[in-house]
Nucleic acid binder design. Structure first.
Lengths: 207, 207, 207, 207
DNA sequence: AATGAATGAGAGTTCATTCAT
DNA sequence: TATGAATGAACTCTCATTCAT
C-alpha cells in the first residue's frame, strides 16, 4: 500500500485513538452499571462497534482497562486537587475545598450511572468501587499525607490520618448518594466538620 | 423404643453438623481471600473433603452461605456489643470499648485468614468485605444511631454520624492489618481519638 | 424380636404394599404432569412421605416404575376390553364399544391430570404418552389383530390394520382432549365411523 | 479495494456454513437415536469436531436447533406437497401421491438414521418424533384441512379428519419401517385405501 | 425396611482469550 | 490492524443412586 508519509496524525492514529476512547467509555459505563466483578470484557466490547478481538489490541485484560480508567480519572482529578492545595490559605480551607469538589464529582458521576442501572442492587454488601473513585482516593491520600509531613496537620500517624479522612468522605458520600434529594452541601459540611474537629482534637489525645 | 429423649446426637447429626461447619469455614476463607464476587461455590467446596453436590444440601447458593456467615458473626458479636453498652458509664467509654473489641476481633480473624492467602493481593481495587464485618458494622451502626437518638451523642444527622464512625474504624483497621507488627492498641487509640474529638467538635460546626 | 406368626397380612406386608401404592400413585401424577422424560425420581418421591432411598426398595429406576404403571393399567383395562369382546355380537359393535370405553377413560384421566399442569405445554412436539395409554394401546392392538385372524375383519395385513385403528383413536382422542368442552361422544362417533368405513372399503382396494 | 461484489464465499463463510451443517447433521442423528427429550446439547456437539462452546455460536438451545431442523424439513417437503396438490386432478389422487411421497421420504430418512443406532430401542414408550416429521405432519394437516373447507372432502369436522389421516399415515409408516424389507408401496397402498374408504363412508355415518 | 445425606457424573451455559482470515 | 468464530476451562446446579445409620 504505497502511501505518502502522514504529516499530521494519520487516519490510522486517529482511529487507534478513537477506538481506545470508545473502549474506555464503554468500560466506564459497564463498570458503573455492573460493578467490577460482574462486568465482562464481552459486555464492554458489546457497547462498542469493535470486534471481540480488537479489545486485546488495546488492553490485555479487564484488569488493565480498569487501571487505565483509574489513570484517566487521576489525570482529570489530580490537577484540580493540586490547584486547590496551592490556592487554599491553610489546611482547613483545603480540606473544605477538596471535600466539596469530591462530593460534587461524586454526585455528577452518580447521576450518570444510576440512569442505566437495570434492577435494584443485587448484592448490597459489595462496594461499587469505580476506577475514578479509586484514583481520587489515592490522590487525596497523598495530599493528606503530604500535609501531615509538612506540618499543616497534627503530627500523628499520617497513614492513619489520611485513611480516616478518606473514610469519612467516602462513607458519608455513599450515604449522601442514597438519599433523595442528593444534598451535596449538607453532606460535605458534615464531613468537613467531622474531619476538622477530629483533627483538632487529635494532638491532645494522641501523643 | 425404651426412651423418648434423644440423649446424644447420633452419628448422622454429628457429621451433618461438622460438614456444615466445614463449609462455613471454607467459605469464610474463600470470601476473605477472593472477595464475595470473585468467590465461587466450587472454590468453597474444593477447600473441603466434600463432593460438589453436597454443598447444595446445606446452602442453596453462594448468597445463602454468605448470609449464614454474617448471621453467625452477628450472633457472636451482637451480645458483646450489647454488654459493652450496658456496662459503659457513658458514650465515650462505650466507643472506646467497642473500637477496641472490634480491632481485636479484626486482628484475630485476620490472623486466621492471612494464613491461607497464597499470593499477593490479586484484586486490589475490590473491597474485601467479609460477612462477619458486614454483621459487625450493622450492629455498630445501630448502636451509634441509638445513642444519637438517646441524646448521648450530639444532635447531628445520626446516619451520617454512624457512617463516619464506622468508616474511621474500618479504614484505620485495614491500615492496621497491613502493618507488621499489628498494633491493635495504637490503632484503636487513634480511631477512638478521631471519633471522639470529631464528635465533640460537631455541634458547634453543624447547626 | 419374638413375635407370633402373623396369620393375616402383617403390618410389615401392609406398609410394604401401601408404600408401593404410594409410589405408583405419585409416579402416575408426575408422569402426567411432566411427561416421562422430564419426570425425575426425585419428583416422584417428593410427592410421597417416603425417603429418597426407599424408592429403590420398590423399583430399580424410573423406567421400572413406568413399566409397573403400564402393567397396572393393562390389568385394569384388559378385563374390560375382553368382556366387551365377549359381549359384542359382531366386530362393529366391539369397535364401537371399545372406542367409547377408551375415549371415556381418556377423558377421565385427562381431567385428573390437567388439574396440576403448571404452565402451558413447554415442548409441543413431544407426545405425552402415559403408561396407562401404552397398556391400553397394546391391548387394543392385540384385540384387533386377533379379530383379523378370526375373520371378523377383512383379510388384510393385520398389523397395519391394527396400527391404523389405534392411530385413528389415539389422534382423534388427542384432538378431542384439546377442545372445550371435551365431547367424548362426538369424537368417538367420528373415530368409529372412520374405522368402520375404512374397514369396509379395504377388501376391495387391497387384495 | 478493487472490487465490490464478494465473488466467492471466503474461507470464513465456508467453515461457518459447514460447521452449521455439521451441527445440524449431528442433531438429526442424536434426535433420531435418543428422542428430543433425552437428547442433550452435549450429545450433539460430541458427534462433531467442534468445541463445547461453539454450539452456542450457532444455536441458543436444543429447542432452537430442533426448530431449525424442522424448518429445513419443511422447506424440503412443503414445495413437494404443494406441487402435488396443484398437479393432482382430484383429492384422491392427491392423497395417493402425498402418502407415497411421505412414505418414500420416511424410508429415505430412516435409512440415514438406523445406520448409527447402536443398541436396541432404549426407550420404547417414547414417541420418536423427529423435526422433519413434525414439519411434514403440519403441512399435511393444513392440506387436508384446506381440502375439507374447499369441499373436496366430506363436510365432517376438518380437524378430526386431518388428524385421522395423518394418524393412519404415521402409524402405518412406523410399522412399515419396522419390517424387513421396507415395503414402501404396499404400506402406502394400505394407508391410502384406509384413508379413502374411510373418507367415502364418513358422510353417511356422521351427520 | 426406612432413612436421607453424600456422591460425582453430567447438564446447560458463559467467558476470556486466541488466531486464521 | 480489525475481525469474529473457535476454543475449552470453569461455573452453577440437578440428579440417580449408594450406603452408613
Amino acid at each position: 500500500m504505497p502511501q505518502a508519509t502522514p504529516p499530521l496524525p494519520g487516519k490510522r492514529e486517529q482511529t487507534k485513538l478513537s477506538n481506545r476512547q470508545a473502549i474506555l467509555a464503554a468500560a466506564r459505563e459497564v463498570f458503573a452499571a455492573l460493578g467490577y466483578e460482574a462486568a465482562t470484557v464481552r459486555d464492554i466490547i458489546r457497547r462498542t462497534r469493535l470486534a471481540a478481538g480488537t479489545f486485546y489490541n488495546y488492553f490485555r485484560s479487564k484488569e488493565e482497562v480498569f487501571a487505565a480508567l483509574a489513570d484517566e480519572g487521576a489525570r482529570r482529578f489530580g490537577p484540580i486537587l493540586r490547584s486547590l492545595r496551592n490556592e487554599a490559605p491553610d489546611f482547613e480551607c483545603f480540606v473544605r475545598a477538596a471535600v466539596n469538589a469530591y462530593f460534587q464529582f461524586l454526585a455528577a458521576e452518580h447521576a450518570a450511572w444510576t440512569a442505566q442501572r437495570p434492577e435494584g442492587e443485587p448484592h448490597p454488601h459489595v462496594h461499587r468501587e469505580t476506577p475514578e473513585m479509586a484514583a481520587v482516593f489515592a490522590d487525596v491520600r497523598d495530599a493528606v499525607a503530604d500535609e501531615v509531613v509538612r506540618g499543616g496537620a497534627p503530627a500523628v500517624d499520617p497513614d492513619y490520618l489520611a485513611a480516616a479522612c478518606i473514610a469519612i468522605a467516602r462513607e458519608v458520600g455513599e450515604k449522601m448518594l442514597a438519599r433523595r434529594p442528593v444534598e451535596t452541601e449538607r453532606a460535605a459540611e458534615f464531613a468537613v466538620a467531622m474531619i476538622l474537629s477530629g483533627l483538632r482534637g487529635l494532638p491532645a489525645a494522641v501523643r
